[in-house]
Design a protein around this nucleic acid. Structure first.
Lengths: 345, 345
DNA sequence: TGACGAATTTGGAACGTTCCAATTATATAG
DNA sequence: CTATATAATTGGAACGTTCCAAATTCGTCA
């Protein structure tokens, strides 16, 4: 129940040295004599002193806080992304403000400005749908490194880390075509995100490449969630000529599509080929195991954190764009004979 | 590229008033004249001033930061818990340090001490397995409100918010018995968490209550994850006399059990009754829809945040224990004729 | 012993805010 | 026009640290 936090001068007094010496000890400076260091350290332990990082920041105006804003933590893709960042950030001796915008740009704006007031050294942003340049410009202008992940923010002059959505979608469709499918749907999502656009483009180009005409009605929009997948199947069921396979916007949608097919007595992977996108952790153990494009969200999170840390240390802020490569992981849901060994667990 | 952050005195100078006045404006004090307020506010806008909350904390030593440590963000139960907290914390004008301990007590300790240095006003902890009193005592002793959620930390004199695991498990087993099951397994988890113990106790008591003897071998331990559920089924398949239903430690295990059954050509909900625990968001849309004990993680998160906020505002720190009630949500996976309307979406 | 360089230690100003007591401006009443 | 209450503003100390320049102590060598 100490009335006021014990400070550096309290322990200085107790140790019979000056506050400067204590400060030196705290930062592990080689300037202080071994005996003095010991004495100070024991006193620190005895008095239960806790370092006040806020006060230190005030003086040296470089904090050890990294802001992370994620659009949807309940989606396991983003949760893993966040965990990857967390690992990297922690082990670099930083600490994080992690907030969830829930796809609301207003909330996102509030959160970012609050982080700014709290003096973050850098920001990693997985933007909410509809994020605009103006939402991040002030931060970036004031010299704080910003890294945008997963989704692009068009026009923003900041670093980005995006997975190769185009190539991934293309690989998926090629695989389905090689299995003999020609009526292939694209399920889930709306045109409002860059991710959607890129994946759709890969889908279209792979079809054209195989001389399969692109049919507008096979793009079935829905929420990018498990429930959205179910809804997409419902809409598909009324088609006169039904597709025989689908590429889904992400794994969540793909699981929903499996659910929806089962409700219609179609066994996913048997009567209908499904490919997801992201390779979330459940993809491997689901039944049927989901064929998907592996994006390695945790790895992406780590790289994003590394990128922002690098920029913080560099001091200067040269935007950098990284496109991370993805790979097709063939499992059971596309109905292929498993031709490729499952990656090691 | 401003060299140094513009401060309150910069804008004071520009507005031709004293820094005190600017400070007053910033806190919306009624003491300042309307005209002055306007003038100051426009200058603030023009100069792109950003408030330095750190400096303010230094003076008034009450921060607006709440620390949240979650053991596993990739588990959607905990992710939703975190989101619930986030909502409450943000709307109370606080900001959060959210960290992920990954079930490591060491990492958890580091994270907590780092939060402490950064001056949190309160802490919400969903403890890693094996957390001990000593891990939170120093914080609590220094007068910072601590709320422990989901899992108990035995012996800690802090507030807790736990769901009624005992009653939930009991309700689940009663339901299975009412459907005619008598050989019922308990799947997933190890004895190392309080949650496991409480749920198992509910399971046992409900059996005894119905004069069904408790059989040790029907408690099938496994990792509390989807993969663990699959593993548990494998172990069950070799039993001479197989159970006809199972209560799972949580929904993740339950999904894994469904997967495992399907691999063995048993249709979950038909040949075998399954009840989960937690009611994560996917439980409703999965096929078969999962019968489970609804714990409302997001609601729990909100309540936990409210509790810690209350304690922060109260100043004093009287530990409070809240047991939140749970309810059985009957869906398809237990094979019951759906006798109760699905809750509204 | 005195001097000199290296090793340690130290006082005080700064960082950007809040808060208090004190001051100044403005309005009201006599 | 003065006295007085009220409204608005203000200077300076304080919060806990870092950093710098300066001071002190120590050891060594002539």
């Amino acid at each position: 129940m100490s009335k006021s936090r014990t400070s550096i001068v309290d322990i200085a007094r107790a140790a019979g040295v000056s506050k400067s010496t204590v400060s030196l000890v705290l930062q592990g400076s080689p300037l202080v004599h071994e005996k003095t260091r010991e004495k100070v350290n024991t006193i620190i332990g005895d008095l239960g002193y806790v370092y006040n990082r806020g006060a230190a920041n005030l003086r040296q105006s470089r904090s050890k806080i990294i802001g992370i804003v994620v659009n949807d933590l309940t989606n396991s893709f983003f949760a893993e992304l966040a965990v990857g960042m967390d690992m990297m950030v922690q082990s670099a001796g930083y600490v994080q403000f992690l907030a969830h915008s829930g796809e609301s740009v207003d909330r996102q704006r509030e959160v970012i400005s609050s982080m700014r007031e709290n003096g973050i050294a850098g920001l990693i942003l997985s933007p909410a749908r509809g994020t605009e340049v103006g939402d991040i410009k002030p931060l970036a202008d004031s010299g704080i490194p910003v890294v945008v992940v997963v989704r692009n923010v068009p026009g923003a002059k900041v670093s980005r880390l995006i997975s190769d959505n185009y190539a991934g979608a293309k690989a998926a469709i090629r695989h389905l075509i090689s299995l003999g499918h020609s009526r292939i749907a694209f399920m889930g999502g709306f045109v409002d995100t860059a991710v959607f656009g890129e994946r759709l483009r890969g889908y279209v180009d792979a079809l054209l490449e195989a001389n399969i005409p692109f049919a507008e009605e096979l793009v079935i929009h829905s929420a990018p969630s498990r429930a959205g997948g179910v809804a997409a199947v419902e809409r598909m069921m009324v088609f006169a000529e039904r597709p025989t396979a689908a590429l889904c916007l992400n794994d969540a949608v793909a699981f929903g599509v499996c659910d929806g097919l089962r409700s219609n007595n179609i066994e996913p992977g048997k009567g209908f080929g499904i490919i997801g996108f992201d390779d979330v952790i459940e993809a491997k153990t689901a039944v049927p195991a989901l064929t998907t494009i592996s994006v390695d969200p945790q790895g992406m999170g780590q790289r994003a954190a590394q990128l922002v840390l690098k920029q913080i240390n560099a001091g200067q802020n040269i935007p950098e764009s990284i496109v991370t490569s993805v790979r097709l992981v063939v499992r059971q849901s596309c109905g292929a004979p498993v031709k490729q060994l499952e990656e090691l667990a």
